[in-house]
Write a protein that binds this DNA or RNA. Sequence first.
DNA 1: GGGTTGATGTTC
DNA 2: AACATCAACCCG
Length: 204
Amino acid sequence: MNSRTPWLERDFFTRDVLAVARDLIGVELHWQGCSGRIVETEAYAVQGDLACHTASRPSAREFVEKQPPGAAYVYLNYGVHWLFNLLVKGGGRDGLVLIRALEPLQGIEQMRARRQRQKLTDLCSGPGKLGLALGIQGQHHGMPMASPGRPPRCGLRQGSEVLPVVSDVRVGIRQAADFPWRFLARDHPHVSVPLGKVPPVGRA
DNA sequence: GGGTTGATGTTC
DNA sequence: AACATCAACCCG
């Protein structure tokens, strides 16, 4: 009854990046005393996906080469937001999974303080929001998130509920904008953008 | 409600 | 120069 599910191991991240992105829906992300249920992810593939950082950044290709499955890929977006990804490699397609939204579970007061917002649905309903809510920064780039190797209070564990998963196009990108590689819990109140509501990205 | 715009820093 | 975002601002 009191049994907690085990921490996810490297094998979980040694599969096809699309399978991992889909299977992360419903998984609990634990981060230094805070936690949340993952309700939205996006897959980015090393091969054949121009939207993946590896398509344009040598440093991202080096990261994929040198880091183990389950490593955190963290970077600053638009000079403002820290975005959190997990490295997938050694199974089918290698790639990165962007964690886009959480349902807050633990450490909610700390999340409220960091976000300066009260409503639960304002805390982690977007990749930049959850980065701030959890206190994720550049110093965490490369942190192992799978067992063995992860720090004591960080990691992922299977959730208690099975959530229905649907897929949709990815948010906010111009390259490969038609790939249906975003995964979300159906009708879940904590997602960043509901199913079918991704706005087209404009051009100057 | 919906659409538009500016902030900000790292990478190339 | 581009960018895997967000919130403030306008308009209605």
